[in-house]
Design a protein around this nucleic acid. Structure first.
Lengths: 163, 163
DNA sequence: ATACTTGCAAAAGCTTTGCAACCTT
DNA sequence: AAGGTTGCAAAGCTTTTGCAAGTAT
């Protein structure tokens, strides 16, 4: 994976190519995203140091949509309720393991062999392979042990979801 | 993968084990789910033949939550906006390829070797491997060719998302 | 009879859109 | 100057919750 500066550089170039005007918000969002290695939520971006208090969250949202359409970021469906975004730098693969219960995210280190296999499989099924992201949903160790201590089904009704 | 009857049978047993009362809605939802091979949305379930018009959608929702907590179904985050559910039958692996644009879903036929590799990798990262589901997000062939005809960025602004 | 379930209505929470004012090119 | 951008406010939607009435055990 490239370093932050390289990623930012790429993004800036990409913006220019797409003829997107460079504005303060966009710059700030790109700055923040270039430093992130995992998908971040819209809210996290709005709360980021250079963004919080400076710009309206609706604007941040629209900024992300523009970036998404220009192919700069990918909107990853990691959690059910909230959108997460990752910078979509060529050559970087974003494969994550996400916990279905607590939402924790871990980067998945796929071997190049597995990667090739997956891409081949995807292609076979009529999917484009470039710029894709994958998330493997499971239950992380913490939540796993928490559920072992889970109350019986009759009690579970009370909250529907014990984490 | 087991046939529908076997899946239903398993689900019914699982319900009994979890001491969930068997009611008409629950039966209807289980009937429907046992026949589905891909994740279905809450809405699709509510619109299913034996369910539509018979039961309140809030009830269907709560039914699914109960099933989820009892481990009968898995709430798959396939689309950003809507929840999808799959019956979580032991021994069945639910790995899907989903299009980021149109939401189409294709079952991913992983070889047992790849499956083992993935599970091993997940385990290494502190994730439980049983009952997991995976979705590989990409762009399907249709959407891919659609985007090739996409308007330039300046025009894209008008809609934010051309499919 | 007891405790879990259901329906209907309403609250929440995040995502999207409208529009007039503002700022890059 | 022209057309893309931003803020603020409001609309949209799916998901959640409250409660009293209904029902499986």
């Amino acid at each position: 994976m490239k370093n932050s500066a390289e990623r930012l550089d790429w993004a800036l170039n990409r913006c220019a190519e797409s003829q997107l005007r460079m504005t303060p918000v966009r710059g700030a969002v790109l700055d923040f995203l270039s430093e992130q290695r995992k998908p971040v939520s819209l809210d996290e971006i709005s709360q980021a140091p250079g963004v919080k208090g400076q710009y309206d969250s609706t604007t941040v949202y629209r900024t992300l949509m523009v970036f998404k359409d220009a192919g700069l970021v990918r909107n990853v469906g990691i959690m059910r309720r909230t959108s997460h975004f990752v910078m979509s730098v060529p050559g970087e693969v974003n494969y994550f393991l996400v916990c279905e219960r607590c939402g924790s995210v871990v980067e998945l280190g796929l071997t190049s062999g597995m990667l090739a296999n997956l891409e081949h499989l995807a292609l076979e099924n009529g999917f484009a392979t470039e710029g894709q992201s994958m998330d493997l949903h499971g239950i992380c160790r913490n939540c796993k042990s928490a559920s072992a201590r889970r109350a019986p089904a009759s009690k579970v009704m009370a909250r529907y979801c014990l984490v």
